[in-house]
């Protein structure tokens, strides 16, 4: 029960906004819906409308993917989306301008990217530019707690939540550290593997969620392997939040860019129905 690392603290503004979003969903007796879309996808002009459509269709939290050239945890769908954005020459600065243009959307926005990006920008600078763009929290799947002190200090300085991933193969000691260092929520990986390929491993993931819950009062959301209304409903039965990425990106990308927001809206509407069906 006692966190081994209490770097984050409960009073980060970003963490409070995120936890409030989970609380609103809980008050409606449903899981929160967290929707990932790659920033600048399918193109820079259409991308803001995709995020707007996701929120209008019921997303409680937006996960903004900042593309990376070597996304080790992502499967083919998000890899391809990353590459499309990078091939278009879109920069981090442009992606964060895009985020700033979403200020009217009344949901917390978190960034998901890789540590190479944060590290190369400089942790202090990166925390500043995210906070200035209105970001509430950060997910860096290749930054384990043991390497995270320098980042957590800068994130904390700017009130950013840091969401760590927990895995079914994490030891109890590691879950202690993950639960203790996380703020906003704890991200439970729904399977062993990369995004957008296989389905959630149900029993194993349910057990993981229980193990995390035993260590923290933070919400626990499940991502990797959730792809549609049925799988969202299944996960919503035991988790506080449901994270969907690859299938949203696929919807955004399968067809002409102008139609991407409506395709995202249709899918997110389905997912939102799913998270209330538990």
């Amino acid at each position: 029960m006692t966190p081994t690392t209490d770097v984050a603290g409960p009073d980060l503004a970003g963490a409070q906004a995120i936890q409030a979003a989970f609380a609103r969903a809980r008050a409606e007796d449903r899981a929160a819906l967290i929707v990932y879309v790659t920033a600048g996808y399918p193109d820079l002009a259409t991308s803001p409308a995709c995020y707007e459509a996701a929120v209008e269709a019921g997303a409680d939290i937006l996960e903004v993917g900042l593309p990376f050239s070597d996304p080790m945890m992502d499967g083919p769908i998000i890899q391809a989306a990353n590459q499309t954005v990078l091939d278009a020459g879109t920069t981090i600065t442009q992606q964060l301008e895009l985020v700033r243009s979403l200020a009217h959307l009344d949901v917390p926005k978190v960034v998901m990217t890789y540590v190479t990006i944060a590290d190369t920008r400089g942790y202090a600078h990166f925390a500043d530019e995210l906070a200035d763009a209105g970001i509430a929290g950060v997910i860096l799947p290749d930054l384990p707690v043991a390497e995270a002190d320098a980042w957590l200090a800068e994130a904390g300085r700017r009130g950013l939540a840091t969401i760590f991933l927990a895995s079914s193969v994490s030891t109890d000691a590691r879950l202690d550290a993950i639960a203790g260092a996380s703020s906003g929520w704890v991200y439970a990986a729904g399977l062993l593997g990369v995004t957008g390929v296989n389905a959630v491993a149900g029993d194993v993931t349910q057990e993981l969620v229980a193990r995390v819950r035993a260590r923290t009062d933070l919400p626990v959301a499940v991502g990797i392997g959730v792809k549609d209304r049925a799988s969202a409903a299944e996960v919503a039965r035991y988790a506080d939040g449901v994270i969907v990425g690859s299938s949203v990106v696929r919807a955004a990308g399968e067809g002409d860019p102008a139609g991407a927001p409506e395709r995202v809206r249709a899918l997110v509407t389905e997912l939102r129905t799913g998270v209330a069906e538990r």
Partner: peptide, 14 residues
């Protein structure tokens, strides 16, 4: 140096 790896690999690395 260091160990910048996804959590899923933590067990295998240990």
């Amino acid at each position: 140096g260091g160990q910048y790896v996804p959590e899923a690999l933590s067990g295998a690395i240990a």
